[in-house]
Amino acid sequence: MLNNRKSKMIAYILLIIASIIMILPFLFIIFTSLKGDTEFVSGQFTFLPKAWQFENYVAAMQTAAWGTYFKNSFIVTFFGVGASIVVSLLAGYTFARMNFKGKNVIFIILLLGLMVPPQAVIIPQFIIMKHIPLFGGNDLFGMGGNGWLNTYYALIIPQVAAPVGVFLSRQFYQYFPKSLDEAAYMDGAGPIRTFISVYLPLSGPVIAAFGILKTVHIWNDFFHPLIYTNTAEMRTVQLGLQAFQGEFGIEFNLLMAATLVVSIPLIIMFFVFQKHFVQSLLSSSVKG
């Protein structure tokens, strides 16, 4: 008992220290974002701001086109996550519940996709993007214009191609009893009706797990917007933050304010859906 109490004590102390170390940078962000401009002149660091200037947030949001950046990020995240879920659930359901010719071969080819880091195929992906026919000034043969480059398509469609969602939903649908399909079949429902009226209403957990995973992924994505966009109008919040630092990097109070604003949506989401977050992390880990 004594031993147990002692080890609990040690656990508390250690976890408090670790938590402080992990959370300290966040406190620095918050307190720095509230400091007055003059507090940086001396070059002397103080933990708490002297002035508590909440108007820094207004100033930071007004110094760049944050409205546009947020709009872009919301659009790309919303449609990217939505399209990923729909497309992945359909494919996952098909692989889990139906038999068709070539099923295993097709599935193994999909398996291959898990081994492909997105950065490794970015060069040909970029060339394909540029030559999508009849878009961005391209002719029927994909020549002459910029295709999907610098459009929402470029930021949304490749996100849908990630195979994790198919694996998650296949795994999810696999464990339902066969009698479920048979009952639906008896009622005269075809596979599509069965999916919509029987399986879709049961899909909450997999939609939550995959949806969270994908939301974090797309909202935080810096790599693809960096490659695929080249105008300020198409910037997502991550690109906007980077550009902001390039222009106003010395004004750390505004930079920290912007950093916090960009991170806030996911931080809120994390605290609200904490349980689902952990679940999504675990389920995505068990792929294959």
């Binding site: 976890l15 408090i16 670790a18 938590s19 992990m22 959370i23 940078p25 966040f26 620095f28 962000i29 720095t32 507090e39 940086f40 001396s42 070059g43 002397q44 660091f45 974090v216 909202w219 935080n220 994505d221 810096f222 991550q238 690109l239 933050l241 980077q242 630092q245 990097g249 010395i250 750390f252 930079l255 920290m256 912007a258 950093t259 960009v262 991170s263 996911l266 931080i267 994390f270 605290f271 904490q274 977050f277």
Partner: peptide
């Protein structure tokens, strides 16, 4: 504790970079 320690993983690479640029900054970081 778990939430606090996991928090950095929710931030984007860019936001993390901004934070540490400030932490390392010679202008009073």
């Amino acid at each position: 504790f778990r939430a606090i320690i996991y928090l950095p993983a929710v931030m984007s690479g860019v936001a993390v970079s901004m934070t540490w640029i400030w932490l390392y900054s010679p202008i009073g970081g």
